[in-house]
Design a protein around this nucleic acid. Sequence first.
DNA 1: TGTCCACAGGAAATACGGGGGT
DNA 2: ACCCCCGTATTTCCTGTGGACA
Length: 415
Amino acid sequence: MEATNVKAKIAQQIQHMLHNSIIKDRRFLDDEQLIRAEQLAVLEEIFNANVRDAEIKELSSHFAPILRGDHPVHLAIWGKTGTGKTLTILYFLALLQAMCKAKGVAMKHTHLDLSTPRPCFRALNDLACLLNASKRYTKGISLEEMMQRIEGKLARFGGCFALFIDEVDNVRRDRDAFMTFFVRRLPQRIKAKLILVFASNRLDWPADLDPRVKSFLKLNELIFEPYDAVDLQHILRIRVEKALRPKALKPGVIEKIAAMASRDHGDAREAVALLARSAYLAEKAGSKVTLNLVDEAASELDRDRYLILIRTAPSQLQAAMAAVIESCQKAKGAPIDTADAYDTYRRLCNRTSLGPLSGRAFRDLLTELDMYSLVHCRVISRGRRGRAREITIELPEELVGKIRQAILMHFELWG
DNA sequence: TGTCCACAGGAAATACGGGGGT
DNA sequence: ACCCCCGTATTTCCTGTGGACA
């Protein structure tokens, strides 16, 4: 009898969820789950709303010479994460390639994605793989050999070759060798007209480049500004239409999310994440997405950020955080200073198998925690009793508890 | 008014670790 | 397998400093 009750209850709940469901297709709330073509389709709609018009125009005028058989200079794209650099360029290059094909101009493009840092060798190896010029190596093949394979593969191609190098500043080590290859050596050895497109989120990446490369590198520059609130509204509307059922939102929700996202970063991904979280909350609550839910979602995302931050932080930083939490609790609200925290930290190190750092290094850890605003530091002078950093934790109690738990788990696994 | 505390935080030295070359 | 080199993390050393207190 129990069992049937439970079954009935579950069935009823599922019915209820289906009936009240506000999410139509949750994949459109998370870019990771979309395939490239769908991402580009979403992007196209965004462009249709006249977002990024200026940038598209710039791109067009930069690349237009190709259609006349001319050779445009290289291009550097700057913009923070979530400003749509990658997708915009990919979209544009695909379009351009189609146009070239229609006009009988030989042109192809390749996207070298360096979104995770890697050394020069692996970056070139990746490119070679993309071009089907080589398999993946970890060692046993020289840089020179890798370069020759890339050259060999491209040698036969006589048209226009646009190479889109995403997040260039992620090339660790031998950045100069990497750039020299593309800027000076490669163009000399292949027939094709090589057009390099660099994307980066740091404005100053060419600064520490070999001056000889820099002087050779003739660049056109294009800056992707962060989206403003109006752009974000367009972007969100498109997502809402694809992902949610009609009338799922209370009025003002889109405007609010756009305003919140443009206030802190102008990052479209964050805006969509906020929309997604709000929708999940609404679905769980069985209601429409309300302004209050948006606030709630924002604080949940905030909380998650802190937790992810601490969970993925190095052990020493976690230990420092644990020490601060423990001292604060012991002090019952009174402010802590560096010495207190360091004492606690030393004791914590004894209990675990963590090698204690020097006081100096610990101070740096505290500064880092302060930067992440996991703690707040203020330097005060106590007169003859010296100077000190007053350390406080200004996070919700509940969050502090969760952080503490996360760190404890980390150390149990650890030692 | 000058002293002097107790730490802040910069600079240089040193240890460490991972990858490349032989 | 071994060594070397280089970038990063950490330590060592040091100078600077605001203001309570004598």
